[in-house]
Design a protein around this nucleic acid. Structure first.
Lengths: 335, 335
DNA sequence: CTGAAAGCGCTAACAA
DNA sequence: TTGTTAGCGCTTTCAG
């Protein structure tokens, strides 16, 4: 164990700690001679300034915000986390604050690091941790999960409205026999997308038969199973709203394998607008979510929260955008 | 601006700062009465402990490592960054150190945050920053870029050997007319994969004609152009080694559009083993890179470096693995 | 250009 | 159970 501090360096260089500090901080008013001596002493001793002490002493306000990423296996294989990290990263840079990444331990009472505030990339599995943080009155923002009950700022995607728009779009194209492949309904986004779908269908008095609602879990295998079931139906739907692009792409795969033409015989709408949606063999019509913006906004909100008197928590629902590409087509009611 | 410190709280609660500290740190030996008073005072004043001071005073060694992510547009659309973040995140958690994410500013002399060491997710565009860090003798690790000259620890993928293995595999299947679509040659990985390819071909005295080497840049459009050029050739190759899965998948798209059957008429090998490689319509034979392990190892090395006397920088080259799936097939030399 | 000394805000003995 | 008193390692006036 080494414990070299600025005093050791000062002694070795035969100068004061002040001068050492000056050299470290590149203050110009240091004689060349002293500069040399100090630097060589630093090198000799392998000295590294203590960041905490530097901050404390210099009173640098630069806050540190903790970005908590749930340790959820899928999350690392998704387009999602990276976009959120990107958005947070950009905001953190602009706001000149540090972003501390924390892959959540799962075990809830897992220490929240020494930070001025915390932002959850997703609530998934972190409910207990959040409770404790709220209890501690630590500034916090939750992304991608709209919490009605808790007095917590959250920024999420308006999944319900987005799903309604999808239905509206499909109906406008003449579709009436519309099916859906859901995401994991334990995840709020999954549930909301289904809700919005059902609501919009009901609003148009379009019956949704049970076989037209297939439950997936955002995973490819589940999508494949659902798609196969759907396409094996005697009364095949003319359009399918799939709760994620990954699953939608897989659904297209299944359809093509069955020699169904997309979009001529089957229209498909996805959700996410992942990069490959645009370049897939059938370019996917899908819902774009402002993921990185969600991260950015969330972080900004957290920052405000830290730098101001306690206020009402903000609840933000970000709008989505339907991106029309080639996987949907007009249909006629000629069946 | 607010400046409530522990003393204010103590005064308001009519106790000592020690007691306040105890409440904050959940030390059990505090009377219920005081506990209440302190908590209400904290709430009233909107008090938040200063993390730097907490650390400094408690002497908690918990170091903070900076993970620098180059602000390179593509990097956020790749499987790459997230895997690295994941690996680093996991290691950081095990080592109980904090991970400070820093999206590099591009502008090089961009302040390195107050950290004990720095790890670059990729060197791309951060050369100047690295120079300064090396100059400052700040512990540093560079990922995905093997630096011969600089005395810097780096952990990278053995791209060259991997490419050689691909050639060996293809030759074993009977291919002789093997083409390649390269990545961006300004990126080390791109260059090395081409080098390995050429070297292995030469070693087998298989001539590589110029038209068989097409230059891509890891982007889909470049891959499409390259693939089209290659497949329009009079003497079409029987196999193509593509420097990334994204590009390989696009190459397959092009081939299928031209009604070429894969792998019957054309074998394709990719590089990366991205998730969709396994589930693509033609499951892709590809090279798996231990990306998240690279992050983990890198971070561990950084950690060691911080906690020990200066030593030789380590240079680690991680081995890859060829994953055989359905995009390659035996061929006969009957042309 | 340099150094002495006073904190930065908090925690950790040690007493009481 | 509580308070007193030193520091943690560094920066920063402010004289010199």
């Amino acid at each position: 164990m080494k414990k070299v501090d600025i005093a050791h360096v000062a002694k070795a260089a035969r100068v004061s700690t002040t001068t050492v500090s000056r050299v470290i901080n590149r203050v110009p008013t240091v004689s060349a001679e002293n500069q040399r001596r100090v630097q060589s002493a630093i090198r000799q001793l392998g000295y590294r300034p203590n960041p905490s002490a530097q901050r404390l002493a210099s009173g640098k306000a630069k806050p540190t915000l903790g970005l908590i990423i749930p340790r959820f296996e899928g999350i690392f294989h998704s387009h999602y986390a990276l976009q959120v990290v990107k958005g947070c990263g950009i905001a953190a840079e602009r706001l000149r604050c540090d972003l501390l990444l924390h892959v959540a331990n799962g075990k809830a009472s897992d220490l929240p690091p020494s930070v001025n505030g915390v932002i959850f990339a997703d609530l998934f599995g972190c409910e207990e941790l959040l409770d404790r943080i709220v209890d501690d009155r630590l500034p916090v923002v939750v992304l991608n999960h709209y919490l009605e009950e808790l007095p917590v700022t959250c920024v999420a995607i308006d999944n319900r409205t987005a799903a309604e728009h999808v239905v509206a779009y499909l109906v406008r194209l003449g579709h009436r026999d519309i099916a859906t492949i859901t995401g994991d309904l334990k995840v709020q986004a999954g549930l909301d997308r289904l809700d919005g779908f059902m609501k919009a269908m009901k609003a148009r008095q379009l019956p949704v038969r049970d076989e037209y609602v297939r439950f997936g879990d955002f995973g490819l295998p589940s999508a494949r199973a659902a798609a196969e079931a759907l396409l094996a139906l005697k009364e095949r739907p003319t359009a399918i709203f799939v709760a994620s692009d990954d699953m939608a792409l897989e659904t297209i795969n299944v359809a093509l394998e069955k020699r169904l033409r997309v979009p001529e015989e089957l229209s498909i709408v996805g959700f996410d607008d992942i990069p490959s949606a645009a370049t897939a063999r059938v370019p996917l019509t899908t819902v774009r979510q402002p993921l990185s913006e969600m991260g950015r906004r969330g972080l900004e909100l957290l920052f405000q929260q830290i730098n101001s008197k306690p206020r009402h928590p903000t609840k933000l629902l970000l709008p989505t955008e339907l991106i029309e590409r080639g996987s949907c087509q007009q249909t006629w009611l000629d069946r």
